[in-house]
């Protein structure tokens, strides 16, 4: 790297207000401007990210196996999982909606877990510096898209609030929705816990 790195010079920037302050090893420092705790690197960044990521992967199983909602129409019940919801839209020929739900509920969570896994596995390995640029971009995208996975959860909420016409038609949320929302929250927390500066800490070849 051509520019000096803050850590090598004994300074760090506050993650809240970006004020640069002097830091001492193994001694907690508070930001002189906003009062937040300043970390040279987030404490236990990698183990926290690992823990949250593994938890989200475990919950991803019930999120896909259990129904996210049950629709009663003229007395007949039908439960659907996340994948079932996409299939339903496809059967009705609604390609756009099938695409939105598929992207938000299946593609984004999976891609997010995969990219965090990839970053965690590779963060300690030596790479040429252009790879660090790629990893940094991957992290930025991962952090940005996570919240859009909530689409399906909100749709279930809206349907539950509106479709309550007794025996004619009614919607009940399923346990899968709760598990899926937990997956979204956990992967978001995992991405927040990951310190992107670690990408640049390794030896560059």
């Amino acid at each position: 790297m051509s520019l000096p790195r803050a850590r090598e010079l004994g300074v760090a920037s506050c993650s809240v207000c970006l004020q640069v302050a002097r830091v001492h090893d193994h001694q907690p420092v508070c930001c002189p401007r906003c009062g937040s705790r300043i970390h040279v690197r987030y404490p236990h960044s990698l183990s926290r990210t690992w823990a949250l990521l593994v938890a989200s992967m475990i919950l991803y199983v019930p999120a896909n196996l259990y129904p996210v909602m049950t629709n009663t129409y003229l007395g007949a019940d039908s439960s659907s999982t996340i994948l079932g919801g996409v299939a339903l839209f496809l059967n009705e020929g609604d390609w756009l909606l099938a695409g939105i739900i598929f992207t938000a509920s299946i593609l984004v969570p999976l891609a997010k877990m995969m990219s965090l896994l990839y970053l965690l596995i590779n963060v300690r390995r030596t790479f040429p510096s252009y790879r660090a640029h790629q990893h940094a971009r991957l992290y930025r995208i991962t952090e940005l898209v996570g919240r859009w996975s909530m689409v399906d959860v909100f749709v279930i909420g809206i349907l539950t609030a509106l479709v309550q016409m007794g025996a004619i038609s009614s919607v009940e949320p399923g346990i899968g929705a709760q598990a899926f929302a937990a997956v979204v929250v956990l992967t978001m927390l995992a991405a927040i816990s990951f310190d992107p500066r670690l990408i640049w800490d390794r030896d560059m070849s």
Binding site: I101, R147, M150, V151, F154, V155, I158
Partner: peptide
């Protein structure tokens, strides 16, 4: 990161299309 009103609006539109059939 926890502000999701924009995601919610997209969800309302998806729900609208989903219900428009019945």
């Amino acid at each position: 990161p926890w502000e999701m009103a924009d995601v919610f609006v997209i969800s309302v539109l998806v729900a609208l299309v989903k219900m428009s059939g019945m």
